[in-house]
Amino acid sequence: MQIPEHNNVGGTFPFTAYDMEGGYYVHAGIEGDVLYPYYADVFEKHGYSGNGECWAGHIAAILLHLDTGLLHRINFDPEAGLFAAKFNFESDRSRFLQLLCPIFTHIPTLESWIMKADRDAIDD
Score class of each variant (00 low, 15 high):
Ser112Pro: 07
Phe13Trp: 01
Phe96Ser: 04
Arg73Tyr: 08
Glu53Cys: 03
His106Met: 01
Pro102Phe: 04
Asp123Ile: 09
Leu63Thr: 01
Gly10Asp: 06
Trp55Gly: 01
Met115Val: 11
Asp19Phe: 09
Ile30Cys: 10
Asn75Cys: 06
Tyr24Gly: 06
Thr105Asn: 14
Ile62His: 03
Asp41Thr: 08
Met115Ser: 14
Ile59Asn: 01
Asp41Pro: 00
Lys86Leu: 14
His65Gln: 15
Ala60Val: 04
Asn7Gly: 05
Tyr38Asn: 07
Ala28Trp: 00
Phe83Trp: 02
Asn8Asp: 03
Ser49Arg: 15
Tyr18Ser: 08
Ala84Ile: 00
Phe104Ser: 07
Leu35Thr: 07
Ala121Gly: 04
Ala60Leu: 04
Val26Thr: 13
Gly29Cys: 03
Ser91Tyr: 07
Val34Glu: 13
Asn51Trp: 00
Pro102Lys: 06
Leu35Gln: 06
Glu5Asp: 09
Met115Glu: 13
Asp120Leu: 12
Met1Thr: 12
Asn51Asp: 09
Tyr24Glu: 14
His65Ile: 05
Ile74Glu: 10
Val42Arg: 00
Phe83Met: 02
Glu90Met: 14
Pro37Ser: 10
Leu66Gln: 12
His6Gly: 02
Arg93Trp: 02
Thr68Val: 06
Pro4Leu: 12
Ile107Leu: 09
Tyr39Leu: 05
Thr16Asn: 12
Ile62Pro: 00
Glu111Tyr: 04
Met1Phe: 10
Tyr36Arg: 11
Arg95Cys: 07
Gly32Phe: 02
Asp77Thr: 15
Cys101Trp: 02
Val9Lys: 13
Leu64Ile: 07
Leu99Lys: 13
Cys54Ser: 08
Gly29Trp: 01
Ile103Gln: 04
Pro102Gln: 04
Arg119Pro: 02
Gly50Ala: 05
Thr16Cys: 07
His58Glu: 05
Arg95Leu: 07
Asn51Cys: 08
Asp120Asn: 14
Tyr24Asp: 07
Leu35Asn: 09
Arg95Phe: 00
Tyr36Asn: 06
Leu66Glu: 13
Ala28Phe: 01
Glu31Cys: 14
His6Asp: 08
Glu5His: 02
Leu70Ser: 10
Leu66Lys: 14
Glu53Ala: 09
Ala17Lys: 03
Gly52His: 01
His27Gln: 15
Thr16Asp: 11
Pro4Thr: 13
Ala80Ser: 09
